[in-house]
Design a protein around this nucleic acid. Structure first.
Lengths: 202, 202
DNA sequence: CGAAAACTTGCGCGGCGCGCAAAAAGATGT
DNA sequence: ACATCTTTTTGCGCGCCGCGCAAGTTTTCG
C-alpha cells in the first residue's frame, strides 16, 4: 500500500522543499543578510545543523528552486516528438519549464516581480543563481545530446545549450527590470524567436 | 614629474594585482580550501585586513582577472571601425580580449590547461567566475549599445550580449575539457562562426 | 611645512560550514 | 510484536571568513 515510494524519501523531499521555500520567503522579507541559517531551519521545523545536510549554503537553498527547472526542461525536451524541429522543441520545453508547475505556481506571478530583485542584489545570491543556471544548461545539454545523438563533448552542443541558458537569463533579467513586462512565457518565445534569426548582419 | 597618474593610484593598482595573482597562484598550488586569506595577504606583503579592502572574498580576488577582460573587450569593440559588421567586430574584440595582454600573457598558456580545472571545482569559485562573466557581458552590452545606438534596456541587445558571454564560457569549458585543444583564439572564432549561422533548423 | 584626505592595520564580533559521535526515527526480518 | 540494522537528525566544537571600528601611517595639496 506504499504510495509509490518509501516514507523516508517523501519526508526528505518534503523538508528539502520546506527549507528551500523558507529560505526564499525569509530572504524576500528581510533581505539575505538579515536571515540566519537558524531562522530558516526553525521555519522548516528542523535544526540548523540539518539545514547543512541538505544545502551547503543559504544561497544554494534559494537557488535550488531554479536548478530544479533544469530537470523539468530536460524531461520535457525528451518527451517531445522526435520529428519536431530542435529549436521549436527547445523553445516549448523551456516555456513548459516555466509554466508547468508541479503542485504550485512556478512562473513567478506579479507578486514576485517586486521581490525577486531584492534577492538578486546579494553577490552571493547572484553567483549561486548563475551556478544553478549552469546546472540547467547542463541538463539541457544532456537532453540535446540524447535527442540529436551528437556527443555532448563537442563544442557545438555546448554552444547551443549555453545560448539557451543565456536566453533564459536575459529574459529573466528583462522581466525583472522592465516597467510592466509581459509574462515570462511570452518573453521566452520572443527571445527564442529572435535567436532563431541569428546575430545581426549589420 | 608625475608618471601619468598619482603615486597613490599606481600603488593601489599594484597591490590589487599582486593580491589577485597571489590568490590564483596559491589556489592552483594547494587548492582553494587550503589557502587562507592570511596566506594571500602575506604573499602580497599586506595585512589580511587589507585584503578585504580590495576584495570581498577569496573567490572574487581570483575571478577579478576574468572580469577585467570585460573592460578590454568593450574598449576594443568601441575602437573598431564603425562600418565593420557588428558580429565581426564582436568576434575580433573578444579574441583581442584573450590575446592582447597588458604586460603579461592573458591567453592562458598550456601550463594553465592542467591547473585551471583545479580552481573550478570549488563551488564558490564557479559562482564567482560566472559572476565575473556576467560583468563581462555587462561591459559588452554597454559597448554594443553605444555602438548601435540601441537602448541597453531592450531585450534584444541583452540577448546578444548574453549569447556572447555564453559563447565565451562554452569555449573555455571546451578548452578546459578537450584532449588536446586548439588555442583559445581559434576556438573563439569557430564558436562565433557557428553562432553566426543561427540555431539548427532541424 | 602643516592640515586634510586616503589607505593600512589590529582587534573583536557574529556568523558560517563542517567533522564527529551520540540519539532518534524509519526500514527490515522473524 | 520484537530485536536489529540502516539512515537521518541533532548538539557540540572548531577554524575561518567578512566586516565595523578606531587608531596609526602614508600620500596629496595648499
Amino acid at each position: 500500500m506504499a504510495t509509490e515510494k518509501g516514507l523516508r524519501e517523501r519526508k526528505k523531499e518534503q523538508t528539502r522543499e520546506a527549507l528551500s521555500w523558507a529560505a526564499i520567503r525569509l530572504t524576500v522579507e528581510r533581505g539575505f543578510d538579515n536571515v540566519l541559517v537558524e531562522d530558516i531551519a526553525a521555519a522548516a521545523g528542523v535544526s540548523a545543523r540539518t539545514f547543512n545536510n541538505y544545502f551547503s549554503s543559504k544561497a544554494e537553498a534559494i537557488a535550488a528552486r531554479h536548478a530544479d527547472r533544469g530537470r523539468r526542461i530536460a524531461a520535457e525536451l525528451l518527451a517531445r516528438p522526435a520529428d519536431e524541429p530542435l529549436w521549436t522543441a527547445i523553445t516549448e520545453a523551456v516555456v513548459a519549464g516555466f509554466t508547468g508547475a508541479p503542485g504550485g505556481q512556478t512562473d513567478p506571478g506579479p507578486q514576485w516581480r517586486k521581490q525577486v530583485p531584492i534577492m538578486l542584489d546579494s553577490p552571493a545570491l547572484q553567483g549561486e543563481f548563475l551556478r544553478a543556471n549552469a546546472a540547467v544548461e547542463a541538463d539541457i545539454l544532456a537532453a540535446i545530446s540524447a535527442r540529436t545523438g551528437i556527443d555532448s563533448g563537442q563544442l557545438y552542443p555546448k554552444l547551443l545549450a549555453g545560448t539557451v541558458g543565456a536566453a533564459i537569463l536575459a529574459v529573466l533579467d528583462h522581466w525583472r527590470q522592465a516597467e510592466d513586462p509581459p509574462p515570462v512565457a511570452e518573453l521566452l518565445r520572443e527571445a527564442f524567436g529572435l535567436l532563431a534569426q541569428g546575430p545581426p548582419t549589420r
